[in-house]
Write a protein that binds this DNA or RNA. Structure first.
Lengths: 236, 236
DNA sequence: CATGCAGAGTGAACGGTGTTAACAGACGCT
DNA sequence: AGCGTCTGTTAACACCGTTCACTCTGCATG
């Protein structure tokens, strides 16, 4: 029985199985090895340790969620920016709900003592995810469908923070233009995190309808009210 | 050196030190014992195991955050319901930021395989927290300062979910009246979770100004626009 | 006072973990 | 043929949570 070669990919895939079955704590080096028909030290030829394993796992999941959102966006008309933003948002929520442990690993309580390696795989796949949404907002801004703020409407302290953020990312945007993007990211992540964490169980057996409404309101808040009411087309 | 007696309280307090220093993973039975100048099995006279330890720890933290919010509310005029809601909200955020690991333990990624004991200390202290906010909303509703929805404005599926939730909690409220409460809880938790998790670090070095604005907007969304603009009094 | 008992802490042990070190075989290249 | 390199092995170390059998102490009761 010539078993197939032990590769980093297979190690990560098996780790993910364990993650899904029992959460992050269940990703146990020795069990990964067992499932691959190999002893634990063999894994150290492909992965430098458990931390590295989790790093690779996080990066793989981040790539997957970015893929899912990208695919949803690509399924929309290139010109329908409202639909594209909604598609990405809902795809994010859907991926999170069907991949709760993975979502928890990416966006959940940071593992204390664990620090993402600078410039490592997690930050590049994370950046990719951010850029995907960033482009959607830039498109909305370009066609005038983003509800921006006048800078004076921002608290001075917040205004300089946003200006600093725009500068450090090399974006030629005013604080009032960057603001809706940050709000969108923040609220989307919050809505989905709370749903995934199950902290609404006291209210809902199935929180889908509630979450859809929340995301719908969010997108409505971000966009200029106007010509293209997409609400009716959001079949989920 | 007659050391003071080993009590459950001291065990929990030491566990919390470890939690603060190194996160949930660092709460290690043997280390707790070591710090208390005792061997590990001794702890089993006071605590039934590591799960029990975490349960007690979560409950203690939940009590503390509820205390903090209650104290903030009590510091307001009994009749100023707007101020009371804001005080509770900001106290929640402040506690979370100054007690990140504890917050993560309560509201973060659920520890897989761990299930809160039914009717155990965590659910009673959790209920207390919910009731604190619930009463603030009931007060707002009573004095007509809560921005409720007409039931028809809710998706039918969401409407029945809310009705069911109200019934199961024994609340004589219409779905459109319960809705703002759930939204308030959901958005507050989302905003604070995202800030605590650090997933806004790409945008802000210090996210306080942004978070304050987010919470401010949230409260404004929940309340009837009108006579008592509290915004100017929110010095933080 | 003696006795016995319940509570609290101990050491040793079991099975599990992440990780390292020393070793063994297969493969390609000179 | 010989030599490295790559990939796997076994053995070991230092931890972990938990259980068991034991000791010791203090106190109430005869």
């Amino acid at each position: 029985m010539a078993r197939e070669p032990l590769t980093t990919d297979r190690v990560v895939a098996t780790s993910r199985d364990l993650l899904v079955e029992g959460g992050a704590d269940a990703v146990v080096v020795r069990e990964v090895a067992r499932r691959l028909g190999v002893t634990a030290p063999a894994l150290y030829r492909h992965v430098s340790g458990r931390d590295d394993l989790l790093t690779l796992l996080i990066a793989a999941c981040q790539d997957e969620v970015a893929d899912a959102c990208q695919a949803a966006v690509d399924g929309c008309d290139a010109g329908d920016h409202d639909a594209r933003l909604w598609a990405a948002t809902w795809a994010f929520r859907t991926w999170a709900l069907t991949n709760r442990p993975e979502f928890g690993l990416i966006y959940g309580t940071p593992i204390t003592g664990y620090e993402a390696p600078k410039g490592g795989p997690t930050v590049v796949s994370g950046r990719r995810f951010g850029q995907l949404f960033g482009e959607l907002f830039v498109d909305l801004l370009r066609v005038g469908r983003l509800r921006t703020l006048v800078d004076d409407d921002l608290d001075p302290s917040l205004r300089v923070d946003l200006q600093h953020a725009a500068d450090s990312m090399g974006l030629a945007m005013r604080p009032g233009e960057l603001y809706p993007f940050v709000v969108g990211f923040q609220r989307m992540l919050g809505i989905v995190s709370v749903e995934v964490s199950g902290h609404l169980r006291w209210a809902f057996e199935d929180s889908e309808a509630f979450t859809r409404r929340q995301l719908d309101d969010l997108v409505a808040d971000l966009e200029q009210p106007g010509s293209t009411p997409t609400g009716s087309t959001r079949a989920g």
